[in-house]
Each structure stands twice: as C-alpha cells, then as structure tokens.
Design a protein around this nucleic acid. Sequence first.
DNA 1: GTGAAAGCGCTAACAA
DNA 2: TTGTTAGCGCTTTCAC
Lengths: 341, 341
Amino acid sequence: MTVSYVLNDRSGKVGVETRERVNRVMKEMHYRPSAVARGLSRQRLNAIGVIFHVRASTKLVATPYFGDILGGILEMSMTREQSATLFTEMGDTETQRRLNIYCDGRCDGLIFVAPRDRANLVTSLRNLQVPHVFVSDNGDDPQTSYIDVDNVAAAKQAVDYLIGFGHTRIAHLCGDEAHSSAHRRREGYIEALHQAGIPIDDSLVLGGIYSSQSGHERTSTLLARGAQAPTAIFCSSDEIAIGALDAAHKLGFSIPGDISIIGFDDTSGADSAYPPLTTMRQPLHQIGSEAVEILLDMIDDGGLIGRKRILQAELIERSTVGPPPSAAVMARRESGPEVDN
Amino acid sequence: MTVSYVLNDRSGKVGVETRERVNRVMKEMHYRPSAVARGLSRQRLNAIGVIFHVRASTKLVATPYFGDILGGILEMSMTREQSATLFTEMGDTETQRRLNIYCDGRCDGLIFVAPRDRANLVTSLRNLQVPHVFVSDNGDDPQTSYIDVDNVAAAKQAVDYLIGFGHTRIAHLCGDEAHSSAHRRREGYIEALHQAGIPIDDSLVLGGIYSSQSGHERTSTLLARGAQAPTAIFCSSDEIAIGALDAAHKLGFSIPGDISIIGFDDTSGADSAYPPLTTMRQPLHQIGSEAVEILLDMIDDGGLIGRKRILQAELIERSTVGPPPSAAVMARRESGPEVDN
DNA sequence: GTGAAAGCGCTAACAA
DNA sequence: TTGTTAGCGCTTTCAC
C-alpha cells in the first residue's frame, strides 16, 4: 500500500482522491500506526532517555532540583514531538548493565542529569555509540555534550555578596563530592575569599551531601561553636540551606539577624521558605529544555559532534542575608539612637 | 539462529557448548539485542506511560505531589524491568490526539495521575483498548482501574482534629474543582462539621486551585475579616497550606497561636515548612508503586478487568495546630498565673 | 537440541 | 502517481 505516504505526508506525490479513500478506510478500520514498527524500520523512535542519579529510592525525583529540570525537559520534548522515558540510577554499581538497557534502541539519545562519576560513564558511553548530553560540567570527550551553569562564577558571586555585607567568618556547606558541582562551587568559595584577602579556615568548610538533613546537621555543629561560629553560611544547594534555616531556628538564632544564609539553585520552594531564601538562581527549566535541543541536534548529525553550553546564574536577593551581628550593632550606633528591635 | 534462546533463556533446551559459543560470538560482535524489534514481535515493549495533568508548563512535575508519586512509579517500574515514559497534559483540549500518541504501541499501558475531567477520558479510552489506571477516585468503568486515598475519610479526620482542639470557625480552602479530590475533601469537611453540630458557613469555604499562591490569596482575604476570621483553616493540599502559612506570617499572625492550619498530602517539604506543617499524610510513594503493579497485572490479563484500591491517610501532628486563641487564654487562666508568652 | 521459514507493521528503493 | 519488493531485528511455529 501507498498508505505509508500518510506519515511521510508527501503532498504532490499522491492523488487527492486516493488520499481521501485511504483516509476513509483508515477511519473505518480504526487504524492507528504503530510507533514501534516505524521505529524499527527507521531506526529512530523519537524517544529520548533521561537518567537521574539519586541518593535514595525514596527521594527519587522528589527533590525540587530534579523536578525543575525535568519540567524543562518534558516541555521541550513535547514540543519537539519526542517522548521522554525516565530512568533512575541509584548507585555506581552495575551502571554498565543499565547502560545496555538505555541503549537497546528504546531511546535515540540520552540525557544524564547530575551524573556521579562522570569520567567512568564517558568511557562506557564511547563504545555504545549513543548520542548523549550531560547536565553537569565539562566533559572532555568530543562526542559528549554538556550543559551547565557556571558554578564557580556563581559560587564566587554568592560569597562576594556575603563579603559585601561585611562578613568574614563565612562557612561553606559542600555538596556531594561525587558530583562535580560540589567541587566547582567550593572553588568559587575559595576564590572569593582569596580575592578578598580572607584566609581560608578549613574548619569552616564542611563536607556532606545535597540534602536538608545534611544541612541541618552541619549547621547545628557549626552553631554550637559559640564565638567560633561563622556569621554567614554559603550552602551548596537550597535543600542544604533549608536544613540550615531549620537548624538555626531550632537553636534560637534569628535570620538574618544572628546568621546569614545563602543557598544555591533557587529551586521552587526557596521563596516560600521562612524567611524567604536568598540564593543563586540556576535557570533549571532552561537547562532542561536546552539539553533536549542539544541532544536532538546530536541525534540528527549522528552523535558525532559534542556541544558545550554554559549558562550564568543570577543572584536572587530575598531575606536570609544581612550584615553580621557586630556590624549591625555598629551600623545602628552610627545611625543614631534607634530602638533596638 | 537459535540465538533467540538467550532472551527466552530456556535452559535444558540448548546444548551447553552451543550456548558458550553463542555467548562468545555475542561478545566479539558487541551484540546488543534491540528492544524495539522484540517489542514489535512480541507486541509488548515493557514500557508504561505516565500522564500527569498539570496547570502550567513551568510547574510541570515540580510540584512535590507529582514528584513523590512519580518516585513510587519509577521505583517499581525499575524493579519490574519496565521503562516509564512521561507525558504531561496541559489542557483538556486535543487530549484525543494526544491519546493516540500514548497508545501507538510505545506504551503497554497507561497511568493517569490526578486526571482532570476523568469521565470524558474514560469513554475515549474505552475504544483504545489500552490498559490503564487512574490515580484518582472511583471510576465506574469495569475496565479501568484506580487507586486513591480515602479522601473523604481523611478530610473528615483532619477537621475532627481541629474540632478536638475547640475550633468551631473552621475555614476550608478547596482544591481545583476539575480534580475529583477537591470534591471529596470538601465532602469530608462538611461531614465533620455536621457531625459535630457546627453549622456550615459558606463564607468560610473558598474555591481555588492547588497552589501556594492560591492559598496565600485566599488566606489573606480570610484573615482580613477581623473578628469574622476563622480560627483554623483546613487546606486541601500542602501547597495551599504553605501559601496560607506565608500569608498569615505576613499579616502578623502567629501560628498556631492566632490561627491553626492543617494541610493535606504530607508532601516532602511539609516538615521543613515554618512552623512544621501538621497535615494528613497520603502514602504518595506507595500509591505510585501500587499503581504500576496494578497496571502490570492488567496488562498481563489483557486489560480486561479493572482493579480498585483505596488507601488510608494518616494524621501527622506537627506544629501548626493548637487551640483557638480564646480557648488558649482560658486554658492559661485555669492553669494558674503563668507569664503570658 | 537445532535450523529454516514466516511474520510483527512499518519504510524505502525501485519499477510500472 | 501507484504498486511491488525487500528488509528493519526479533519471536515463534514446525520440521529435522
């Protein structure tokens, strides 16, 4: 049957009345084309795979960071007529076996969101011949694309902002070491401090993971140090910051009066935190949608040439950053006899 | 080639050394089976489709409710070796066209999460012959499955809890009318009030949607009523409650001193709200994972028989509910001369 | 146990 | 313009 013209929809190549007849018959038979058969024939399913690397099964995509990116991915997928299938990686073990599943033809290309242990992944992927893009920092492989925010610049800007308020004892709650973003953000933190001539105090930079609980724990220990406690905390993610906020409240600290906190991501929920969280906004939605555009471009040219894309973060000033306590007192003193509020 | 034995893995039907040889050759050739070809042949792709009904493109799956359910769906999909492909519906328009895409063979079955306008969907789905389950309340069609929490019982329990504290002026911030859950929860609210002999005050039940902004707006108008303001608010979702909390703070109300607030869902984030939100917990993760189990069962028996599943919600007591202001004053009076805090 | 042959529903290259 | 043919990579009879 010339019925295949329907999909190719080559107008001018088929008689008007023949088309009518075919359409009519299709209606009568409740004909619906099979995407799978077409996929087999064309070697292209119009489907992309999205792999999230998560800590625990219970948290899967529930973390706002993933949700926001996923939103961008889905939206662009729909407008480009691609379906998106989701996978979650939970450990670094047996990723090889999983890779074979992702690449068994059900996906034309892959997006890895916040992959752990990227270097290893890249070498595995190289043999698989599957177009892929990372949402994370610089891959070195020419056949892998990536898109990310400029983490070190953003982190530096956050810390500069704190410094601008007069803070000098600034703590940093790091993210999960397995994600490159954690390293980049710490670099930015150190760079800002160096540039301002503030010595790095190793007791002020605490390792951990991207979770509110981890933020809570680390903040509690930090704040228990009394006079040694920092006056400001740069958190490597909003989730960490939310935990920090919570810990500070529980310990009776007022924010930003007693301690300033700045987050990273501007994840949905940052602005309904209490107080609304000052943070570095990542264009999460845009990252997601551009990732699929990049991937689609790669698929079209056979996945041969990788693309690189770096976006800038933006400082969102809300209510969790202010001058350090002592500076505030001084400021008040200078501005005259006001009621101590 | 008898190589197809690999997938069927019928031991005993193939010689040991032949198997060895085949395996070796597969390695050498970097052979990887094509899921698409197998799917075409078997008429089963081992893939399920998940359709979310969302308000706006920007919010897509970023709402915690969806994220938590999706987590359950993905986890179970992985353990059952199914891939999950995601779709988002944004309006009720052209759902028919979209349905054809969902059902073009790339999915063996469909899960609809919080569908709008379910009745219409059901009739469309009936012709399509695709196994499907709704995460929402009672479908009537024998071929459609559903799983949901017992919304009216849960809502009633929430309001009973408020009443137990002595509240009588209890407002209800409804969810989106297009979702059946909004109706069920209002029923529960009314039932609780009736049973306690409290007359329904229509000015206290406010329509809106499931968003924090909507909760914020409605709470603001409620609280502006002065002496007419309620002493407690039952919110139809945590997102609404988060907005309500925010509005109350902005208006200088303390929680739960001046006003009690209870939410619904126990979405991740409810307990890092400030103060931590008292709410009705839906087993969101479980709902997601059971939905895929139900769907898989349906697929196995040809999608002929629908299954129904109702789960119970659980009251999570945190810090946003207390006695109404006047009662609190009385309680204090009775317990002796304490410092008014 | 193993191999040959037909077919899943489509596309593509060619002939008519 | 239209119909024919082969084939995408697998599964599944059914002989051998």
